[in-house]
Amino acid sequence: MTVLETDDPVPGDAYSCDAIEMQIVARSRDLGGFSVRRALPSSRRRLVGPFVFLDHFGPSIFRPGEAFDVRPHPHIGLSTVSYLFDGAIVHRDSLGYAETTKPGEISLMTAGKGIVHSERTGLEDRQRGFSMLGLQAWVALPKSHEEGLPSFEHYEQTKIPEHSAEGKTVRVLMGSAYGLVSPVRQDWSTLYVDVALEPGARLPVDAETEERAIYVVSGEIDLAGDRFGVGSLLVLRPGDALMVTAVTAARLVLVGGATMDGPRHIWWNFVSSSKERIEQAKADWKTGRFETVPGDPEFIPLPDF
C-alpha cells in the first residue's frame, strides 16, 4: 500500500487509565467509497516498536466492475505486513512473485534496498463484486538490514498459531505471546497479535514487550473504566500490565516490540534512518532506476508534496 497525505485530528482529552500513555484517533479518508483509517504515523507518535505505519481499510463493499487497484510503487527500508479479515488482494512484485492474500494469511514483503509491487483485485472478484476489511502495517528494518536484499514470503492461514478459550480467540501474527510463537520472520523484536473477543470476555496484556499499543478494529473495549471504539490506537505505558474487557463483540490487534535503533524518516513509501537515502530513492524512482513488476506496466508517479 502507499502513503496518502492526511491531516491529524485534534487530540482528545486525557483519559484516567494510567496504563495508557496516549490515545491516537486514526485519521479517516474516504477514497471513493473505500474507507481507510491511518493510525500510524501520527504527529504525536511516529513509531511503536518497529511499527512505523498502520492502515485499517474497510469494511467496504465493491460492486461488480469495481476494484481495489494500487498501481506499482516502490519501497525501501521496511517490511510490509498484509493481513485481511475479509476479501482478497493480489500481490505482484519486481522479484516476480504473484500471490493472493486471503483472510487469516500473512504476506510479508521486505523491501531492503528497494522493491516495487502492486496490490489489485483478482479477475473473479472484479466480475462478481466483493467486500474487503483488513490491515496493512509497515515495520521498519534495523539499520543493519536497511540495504539488504528484497524478499517476499507468504504464510497460509493454517501456519499462524491460534488459541480459543473463555470467549476470546488469539492469533499470533508475529513474535510470541500467550504461549504461541509465530513462524513469520522478523528482523527486529516484533509483537503483532490479532484478538477476537465475545462480549464480556477479558484479555490480559502483560508488560514484557518494551513498546506496546492496542488498535481497535471493531466493537468497543473497556480499560480501567474508559471505553474505546473503532479507530482508537492506545499506546501503553512501558512496564504496566493491564486487562482489556470487551463491552461488545470486538476485534483488536496488539502491536509493538523493542524500541528501534534510532529514529526513522518517512517520505511517501520510503523509510530510512538516513534522509539522504530517501532523497536517493526519490531520484531513483523518478528516473526509472527501480526494477519493474512483470506483467504490470503501470506505475504511480513520484508525488509532488
Rank of each mutant, 00 (worst) to 15 (best):
V90A: 12
S176I: 12
M243A: 14
E298M: 13
A26L: 01
V255T: 14
D55F: 05
A177Y: 02
L254S: 06
R227E: 09
A201Q: 06
D296F: 10
Q136M: 06
L242E: 10
R212K: 15
W285D: 04
E147D: 15
V205E: 08
E124K: 15
T100S: 14
F51R: 04
L149Q: 13
E276G: 02
Q280D: 10
Y192T: 06
D18V: 13
T209D: 07
G225M: 11
L141N: 03
D18R: 14
A19W: 11
R92P: 05
W188R: 08
H117P: 04
S144R: 11
V217S: 02
R212H: 08
A19S: 14
V90D: 13
R126E: 14
F270N: 03
E147N: 12
W188A: 15
R71F: 04
H265T: 13
G87A: 02
T287H: 08
L123K: 15
V195H: 01
E211K: 08
V70Y: 01
G231E: 04
F51H: 03
V90R: 12
Q186F: 01
V184A: 11
V70L: 03
K286M: 11
P9H: 05
G96E: 12
I221L: 11
P297R: 09
A111P: 01
G257Y: 11
Y192N: 04
R277F: 00
D261L: 15
S151W: 05
I214C: 01
W268A: 06
I160C: 11
P74H: 07
Y178P: 07
T245P: 02
V253H: 03
L135P: 09
S218W: 05
R202H: 10
R38L: 02
T190F: 05
L141S: 03
E146I: 00
P301K: 12
L149T: 13
I300Q: 02
Y215H: 04
V10M: 09
S182R: 10
S218Q: 11
V205H: 04
K143P: 02
V52H: 10
K282T: 10
G87R: 00
I106H: 01
V139D: 01
T259L: 11
S42L: 04
L197V: 03
G104F: 08
F270Y: 12
L108Q: 07
Q23V: 14
E279G: 08
D187L: 14
D93K: 06
A88S: 14
G77I: 03
D30H: 08
T121D: 09
I24T: 09
G32L: 05
V70H: 00
G58R: 10
D8F: 00
L191R: 09
L141I: 04
I160S: 09
R251G: 14
D222P: 02
L234F: 01
D261R: 14
G96H: 13
V230I: 13
L254P: 07
G96L: 09
T287Y: 07
